[in-house]
Design a protein around this nucleic acid. Structure first.
Length: 512
RNA sequence: GCACAGUUCGUCUAGGGGUUAGGACGUAUCCCUUUCACGGAUAAGACACGGGUUCGAUUCCCGUACCGUGUACCA
């Protein structure tokens, strides 16, 4: 019970890391940190055909971005190195052979085609999902049906083979899951899983069990999609004599599409216009770039906070958590059991929260970086002013550019609906009067003086201040709504405001 | 099909044998405000269904329905 907490996140480098994978990594990390444990990253690259160049680097960068720190990994090493399964290849065979020796596994010489045709034959005979199991294995070419001499000869001749687990006929296999309690499976429903593939690589099942044992993993924390194969793993622990060292299992609820139709998928996310990847992923094969949350403007704090609440809660009404607060309050007992639908709205709300919590100078620097991408610049001071004016109305840093486009560019067009309602003769007179009054404030203009001047102008013309405001806004920003107009005027300065007034007055037609 | 999970407002969830079933996002209305936004307030909105057990069930048990996962020499 006092076993040291050692957890691993074990992705396979087959492409961009899915956002669900990030949550799994997060839960692993939090459980490790909460218990003064060790966070391990292991690369499960046993399927050479699916290996994708760049995927490992991607995983590394994505985890770093959200702030998950690794204690042991292929990139930094550790006392159980190597952490890449392809580099541990030889290890697995030893255990597979041990299983054979003890009668818990066997050589199978059937080619994939042979098994395929057998499967089709069974399907034709009405078997819904044919399995290589305790019944069918006796009709196949393997060390259970062949004589010892035949097996020896085939091996000596270098014939390709797989090693399959010999699942017992009738046995209840009990799996204990920390989230779900005891789950019982019957062995007759399990098939003789391939443990070692014909290319000499282990399958997930063998590699996973062997490595978790050797790396002294205390908790296996993975998605619920693994629950059905958990009995195979339990069987392996038993057969290898490691039952007492078997880790605790936690099968996390799945993250679903917003309408609940299956696991959150890329296709679906695309349709609804949100990313499934933490950071941008370049698919070289398809020559496509998938955008990530980072590029979409989400803060890492947002992702951590949003993701952790998909399947866990503190039991209090607190919803905003920093990583450190999560480490302090995370608990296995409060992880939920049911699948959770992905709600991008909530993520946006978190982002807005974290944006508001970010200091203006920092936000200004981020804005400046965005501006630079469009080949524009601004002084840090001006940028901070932009941030101040717009902060309460944006969700993402990139929104400063769109929400506040009138701070950067004079309007070319004007909101027609507003213009048709508000653009009248008194307004034009106010604007001209205002422009003239502004002449004396070329040097500097503050929001409150901008307001005073406008007030005086309306007073002298006998026009109500409020009746003219939206029209003034329209002339200066092109829109009927937006940030505090006096702040905008102060930001733009008398000169620019005058130019905009001239343009509006000469462009818009007065309505009666 | 079979196996295994799961099911509280639209969504994330709290709760748990007796509650006005609580919060957050979203939605609506109002207030604030020159507009919009922010903020504040208010409102609408849920225990899948059927049987038990019980004085009493949303909570415990059993079934049904629905949803999901799995059913590869993929992870």
């Amino acid at each position: 019970m006092d076993k040291k907490v050692r957890v691993r996140f074990a992705p396979s480098p087959t492409g961009g890391l899915h956002i669900g994978g990030v949550r799994t990594a997060l839960y692993n990390y939090l459980i490790a940190k909460k218990n003064n444990g060790t966070m391990i990253l292991r690369i499960e690259d046993t399927d050479q055909t699916r290996y994708v160049e760049g995927a490992e680097e991607y995983i590394k960068e994505a985890l770093a971005w959200v702030g998950i720190q690794l204690d042991e990994s292929p990139w930094q090493g550790g006392k159980f190195a190597p952490y890449r399964q392809s580099e541990r290849k030889d290890l697995y065979k030893k255990y597979a052979l041990k299983l054979i020796e003890e009668g818990n596994a066997y050589y199978a010489f059937d080619t994939e085609d042979e098994w395929d045709s057998k499967r089709k034959e069974l399907e034709a005979a009405g078997v819904v999902s044919p399995q290589y199991n305790s019944i069918t294995r006796m009709q196949m070419k393997n060390s259970l049906t062949l004589t010892a001499a035949e097996v020896k000869a085939k091996l000596a001749a270098g014939e390709p083979y797989t090693i399959r687990l010999k699942v017992p006929h009738k046995e209840d296999i009990r799996v204990h899951d920390l989230i779900r309690g005891w789950v019982v499976f019957h062995s007759s429903l399990l098939d003789d899983r391939v443990l070692l593939k014909s290319d000499g690589m282990p399958t997930y099942h063998l590699a996973n069990v062997v490595d978790d044992y050797l790396m002294q993993i205390s908790h296996v924390i993975r998605g619920e999609e693994w629950l059905p194969s958990a009995p195979v793993h339990v069987l392996l622990y038993k057969m290898l004599g490691w039952e007492n060292e078997m880790p605790q299992f936690l099968h996390l609820p799945l993250i679903m599409n917003p309408d609940g139709n299956g696991k959150l998928s890329k296709r679906y996310a695309d349709q609804l216009g949100f990313p499934v990847f933490p950071i941008e992923w370049h698919n070289k094969e398809k020559q496509a770039t998938m955008t990530g949350y980072r590029e979409a403007g989400y803060f890492p704090e947002t992702m951590v906070n949003f993701l952790v609440l998909l399947g866990w809660n503190a039991g209090t009404e607190q919803e905003i958590f920093s990583m450190q607060e999560l480490i302090d309050s995370f608990s296995i007992e409060r992880i939920g059991k049911s699948g959770t639908k992905f709600d991008i709205n909530k993520a946006k709300w978190f982002n807005q929260h974290y944006l508001k919590a970010t200091s203006n100078p920092t936000l200004a620097r981020l804005l400046l970086a965005d501006l630079a991408k469009n080949n524009r610049t601004l002084s840090q001071e001006k940028a901070e002013k932009v941030v101040e004016i717009l902060k309460e109305r944006v969700t993402f840093v990139k929104d400063f550019l769109t929400e506040g486009k009138y701070l950067f560019d004079a309007p070319q067009t004007f909101d027609e609906q507003i213009a048709s309602k508000k653009w009248n003769q008194p307004l034009v007179e106010v604007l001209n009067g205002y422009k003239n009054a502004l002449q004396t404030h070329q040097e500097s203009l503050e929001a409150h003086t901008a307001k005073e001047i406008l007030n005086k102008t309306t007073d002298s013309l006998g026009v109500k201040f409020g009746s003219v405001m939206q029209g003034v806004r329209l002339a200066i920003t092109g829109a009927g709504a937006g940030a505090d107009l006096m702040e905008i005027i102060a930001f733009l300065g008398a000169d620019e405001v005058s130019k905009r007034i001239d343009y509006a007055v000469s462009t818009l037609k007065v309505v009666s």
